[in-house]
Write a protein that binds this DNA or RNA. Structure first.
Length: 490
RNA sequence: GGUCCUGUAGCCGAGUGGUUAGGCACCGGUCUGCAAAACCGUCUACAGCGGUUCGAAUCCGCUCGGGACCUCCA
């Protein structure tokens, strides 16, 4: 099949034909989590967005190296604990080693992402393991004349950069505007210019995470890790750089500055940014304190949740919106997603049971084309899902004998659902597969047989009792023309 | 204040200058001992006001509302 994949490039604000720099190899770098807190719904968005992109690129046959970093050092705080490293702060409070805290939350992040069926990246480098590489880039920037020292810290000279390069091209900022609107920050007096950002920060005495360097004992600046690790694992220019829209400025803008100066060109060809998840119309985030952790979704323990939502429900909910739109969380929306997803997965399970006919009344090839067209258009998962529901209607109609498919078409349909539902969208049935446990299967089949006998005797009280009792232990019976079917409920 | 995004039916959410998005909910029907599921059908839309156009929900302008970024944040 001939594909023309178009991706929206934040750099140009346009959808562009995707052409890897070194076809068929694709390098993708995505900004990963800062591991100092439990993963929340906001983390699920980029996790799932770039998982979809990763999976689709692999499906199309590209050899993808997907790098997603772990930030376990280096982000500065700007509240009461000025200049203090977040990991270090948490460590002091908890009386733990900083790396112990990072490991704890990294494990929890992995656990949540695994539940969401987010594939692990090819490489997951940690900032703390790449201090040397970051220092080398600082030195390069200093050597090139764009870094200056001030009281043991090194800053990037934006004004000088803007003479030769275009500062703000990714985020659409204009330097003069920025200078007029930048707020008062700690350490401002050390900078030549309020827009300058730190490349190396001298550690204050109580700062725990610190490394020796030619300039001072300290730690690398906020934006350096991605430049260092992207370069190390994907080369000086790679295909895709991704992350949340909130990272666009100043983080990604600064990465472009660093790469231009240190390597002579920009880091990435395509910049892809996912939008935010909102709750009651407001961004869900750590700093706003309105976030719900993923574990709270999974067990329904957060007060604003009316029930627990399975990881696959969360995944489907996120995929039902386009990645560049905000998506507003609500119980109603999640419940709708839950039902819709079950319908989709139930239909998929029916495909092998369909009976073929000599003629097809439905056009499966057209469905196939529509599915690829949807994802080729900037990974439009909501459109793809809408078309999959057309497939659901076809499957159910064929099962009811109201439509027919040839054996060939059934096979194609099966293959399409496997590719799109399972492999690309990454949706999978969460119920214990009915029939996988031989003993359970036998016991329930016996009950179904007993109920069938009761039904033949028109003993409705007994047959309903069996159905109700089974429902109480989460076994759902459905009567069909071929007899009763059973499945495990939620 | 600056930069940018956005406003679609009860809810969530696509999309497009002229033709059904889709899901959930609701209502009617078919099927069923009853359920459930499924299928068929119906019903609620494009914030407001102007403009461009043969034609705009889709393009432009203004007004009103919501949001993001400008500070660590996915």
């Amino acid at each position: 099949m001939n594909h023309q994949l178009f991706v929206y490039n934040t750099l140009t604000r346009k959808k562009e034909l995707f052409e890897p720099i070194n076809n068929p190899f694709v390098g993708m770098y995505v900004c990963g989590p800062t591991v100092y807190g439990d993963p929340h719904l906001g983390h699920a968005r980029p996790g799932i967005t770039f998982d979809l992109i990763f999976r689709y690129l692999v499906h199309l046959g590209y050899k993808v190296r997907y790098v997603r970093n772990i930030t376990d050092v280096g982000h500065l705080e700007n509240d009461a604990d000025e200049g203090e490293d977040k990991i270090a702060k948490k460590a002091r409070i908890d009386q733990l080693e900083p790396m112990e805290v990072a490991q704890y939350y990294l494990d929890r992040y992995h656990f949540a992402m695994d539940k969401l069926n987010v594939r692990r990246p090819s490489i997951e480098p940690r900032a703390s393991g790449h201090i040397i590489e970051q220092m080398e880039i600082v030195q390069k920037i200093i050597d090139a004349g764009y870094g200056y020292e001030s009281n043991g810290s090194i800053y990037f000279d934006i004004a000088k950069y803007n003479e030769k390069f275009q500062y703000g091209k990714l985020s659409g900022r204009v330097l003069d505007d920025l200078l007029a609107t930048t707020r008062e920050l700690d350490g401002q007096e050390e900078k030549h210019n309020s827009a300058d950002f730190a490349l190396w920060k001298k550690a204050s005495p109580e700062h725990i995470m610190r490394w020796n360097s030619p300039w001072s004992i300290g730690f690398p600046g906020w934006h350096l890790e991605c430049t260092a690790m992207g370069n190390k694992y994907l080369g000086e220019t790679f295909d895709i750089h991704g992350g949340g829209m909130d990272l666009l400025f100043p983080h990604h803008e600064s990465e472009i500055c660093q790469s231009n100066v240190a390597f002579g060109h920009e880091p990435a060809k395509y910049w892809i940014h996912n939008n935010m998840i909102t709750i009651n119309g407001q961004k869900m985030g750590k700093s706003l304190g309105n976030f719900i952790t993923l574990n709270e979704f999974f067990d329904g323990s957060h007060p604003s949740l009316t029930q627990a939502y399975s990881p696959m429900t969360i995944r489907f909910f996120i995929l039902q919106a386009h990645y560049r739109s905000t998506v507003d969380f609500s119980n109603e929306a999640l419940q709708a997603a839950e039902k819709g997803m079950k319908k989709l997965l139930m239909a998929q399970n029916l495909i092998p049971k369909l009976k073929s006919s000599a003629q097809s009344t439905e056009n499966i090839k057209e469905l196939q084309q529509k599915l690829y067209d949807a994802l080729d258009d900037d990974f439009n998962s909501p459109i793809a899902i809408a078309h999959l529901f057309d497939g659901v209607r076809i499957i159910n109609s064929v099962k009811d004998g109201k439509a027919s498919l040839t054996e060939e078409d059934i096979e194609l349909l099966k293959q399409l659902f496997e590719s799109f539902v399972s492999d690309i969208l990454g949706l999978k049935s969460e119920e214990a597969a009915s029939g996988s446990d031989e003993m359970l299967n036998g016991v329930i089949q016996m009950l179904i047989d007993l109920r069938q006998q009761a039904k033949m005797d028109k003993d409705w009280a007994k047959s309903d009792k069996i159905r109700d009792e089974l429902k109480n232990i989460n076994v759902i019976l459905k009567d069909t023309k071929e007899g009763a079917e059973w499945s495990i409920g939620e």
